[in-house]
Amino acid sequence: MHVLAFSVTVFAVSALAGFLGSLTGLGGGVIITPVLTLLLGVDLHYAMGASLVSVIATSSGAASAYVKEGLSNIRVGMLLEIATTLGAIAGAHLIRVVPVSALAVIFGGVLLYSAWHSFQQHSERPATVSDPLAVRLRLDSTYPDGDRHVPYHVRRVKTGFGLMFGAGLLSGLLGIGSGAMKVIAMDQAMCIPFKVSTTTSNFMIGVTAAASAGIYLSRGYIAPGLAMPVMLGVLAGSLGGARHLMAAGIRPLRLVFSAVIGLLAVEMIYNGISGGL
C-alpha cells in the first residue's frame, strides 16, 4: 500500500480507537492490534510492537494528571511493579516460542474478558483491617473525595503480587497494557478503592510496557514507520476522549464499543484456529 495512504489510514483508525478507548475506560491499545491485523493485514508481531508503544504514551499521559491529584498510590504501584516488570520480561521472551495461532487465541480471550469486565458492577469492599505486610510496607493511604481524605486499608498483598505477575506476563506476551487485570488484582484481591485501583493501574502500565519494550526492540517487533501513526493517533484520540469524559450518554457508547471488541475477539480466535493470521 502507498506510504501516505497507509499512514493516514492507520492514524485515523488509531485516533478513533484511542478516542473510544479513553471515553469508555476500556483503553485504546487493546483494539489496535486486532484492527491492524484483521482489517489492514499487518503481521501480528509488528501490530503488537506498535500497540505496546502507544500503551506507554497513553498511560504516561493519563497518569500525569491522576498522580498530581493524589489519587494513585505510589507505594502500592512501586511494589507491584516488581511483579509486573518481571512478568512482562517473561512474556516478551515467550513470544518467540509461542506460535502465532496460539497468540491470536489468547489475545481473543483477553479481549472477550475485557469486554465482559467493563459491564461488571464495581462493589466497593472496604477492608477494616490491614494485611500485616501492608502495614510494614506502609501501603495504607488516603484518597481525596471532595475536600476530605478517605483512609483505606490494603489486604492480601501476596495474592495481589501474584496476580500482578500474571498481568505483566499478558502485557509482555500481547503488547497490551492489561489494565483490567491490574485493576482486579487491586480492587478485588487487595480491597483497594476502585478509583485508586484504576489510577494506580494506569500509573503502572507505562513501567510494565517499558519492561517489554527493550526486548520488543531487540527482536525487531517495533517498526518505526508503523509505530509512528499508531502512537500519534492513539495519543491524539485519547487526549480528545479524556476531554469528553464527563459528557452524558457514555453507557450506550460503551455497549457499542464492547460489542465491537467482542466481534474482534471472535474473529481473532477464529483466525488463530484456522491459521488465517
Binding site: M1, H2, V3, F6, G41, V42, D43, L44, H45, Y46, G220, A223, G225, L226
Partner: peptide, 8 residues
C-alpha cells in the same frame, strides 16, 4: 513509495 507489513 509503498509499504508492506504483511510479512514479519
Amino acid at each position: 513509495g509503498t509499504v508492506d507489513y504483511r510479512r514479519f
